[in-house]
């Protein structure tokens, strides 16, 4: 009995000492080099989101404008495999009818059924791809809300592709490098055969204080980027003023790409 109490006191004492020492070690650690951090110019948000104003896109006389896609695919060294089967795409067009098949009607205004819609990863608030990944190779970045890919860790099981209800993920069925037909971006890597890839909301550009490549490339201001949790952000302002829709909200994934139609 006695010895038990003694050992209890001892252990308690050590614990208290440890707690007391914590701020000291922290202060010491703050000075110690090397250390890592964000760039000071990095753009920050709790949850990045995009509003795609398709009206602005459709109004253009130049209906073949693909500036955003080209900018994205060139920037990220996305290959052009050339077959539907193995296509790799981060940002692309689908028809209104196919994208919003749950709300398509035959008698829509101005025949928008066949109009293009820009589609990309929705960087869901509750992403099923992240839920199913067996290695955490795809994960939800807590700092920015971006659904990221760790190409070093992906085992290529393609569970995330089955889990994604938006078809936003592409698999590298073959070595992609010979198929990069745009000019190589020396500042960004390519991918290897056997991993899954998708839109990254240009994490690496945000870190340098730049907006995503597609947003920057759009000449017509159809793409707006910002923090959905910030009431003063440009995306929230747009959403407050316009009626918008999201892809398949009934699935509970919480997509963060909004469409103004």
């Amino acid at each position: 009995m006695e010895s038990n109490r003694r050992s209890f006191l001892k252990i308690g004492g050590i614990c208290a000492l440890g707690l007391g020492a914590l701020p000291v070690t922290k202060a010491l650690a703050r000075k110690a080099l090397p250390q890592v951090s964000d760039f000071p110019e990095a753009l920050k948000a709790n949850q990045w989101a995009m509003v795609v104003d398709m009206k602005k896109c459709w109004e253009q006389a130049d209906r073949d404008c693909k500036d955003c896609i080209l900018a994205c695919h060139q920037y990220h060294n996305v290959p052009d495999i050339g077959t539907i089967k193995e296509e790799i795409k981060w940002l692309w067009q689908e028809s209104y009818h196919d994208t919003f098949h749950d709300q398509a009607t035959k008698f829509n205004i101005a025949n928008i059924e066949h109009n293009p819609i820009m589609v990309l990863c929705n960087h869901c608030t509750s992403p099923p791809c992240v839920r199913v990944c067996p290695t955490k190779a795809t994960f939800k970045d807590k700092k920015s809300g971006i659904v990221k890919m760790d190409y070093h860790r992906c085992i290529g099981c393609r569970f995330c592709m089955a889990g994604c209800p938006y078809g936003a993920r592409s698999f590298n069925f073959r070595d992609p490098i010979p198929y990069i037909k745009t000019e190589l971006n020396m500042a960004y890597p390519a991918r290897e055969r056997g991993v899954v890839e998708k839109c990254s909301f240009c994490t690496e550009r945000l870190a340098r204080g730049l907006f995503p490549a597609c947003v920057e490339a759009c000449r017509h201001g159809a793409l707006t980027f910002g923090d959905i949790t910030d009431a003063d952000s440009p995306v929230r302002k747009l959403l407050a003023e316009n009626y918008s829709i999201k892809r398949r909200p009934e699935l509970g994934t919480g997509p963060n790409v909004y469409y103004i139609i």
């Binding site: 080099l33 890592v36 951090s37 920015s144 760790d150 070093h152 960004y188 994490t203 690496e204």
Partner: peptide, 25 residues
């Protein structure tokens, strides 16, 4: 790699105080 990809940190302050962008390329 871990800092950049997993933790979203890209700036490295080395032992001598010099700053580096944590990027191989």
């Amino acid at each position: 790699r871990t800092e950049v990809v997993r933790n979203g940190n890209r700036l490295y302050v080395a032992w001598d105080g010099k700053e580096y962008n944590m990027s191989l390329q």
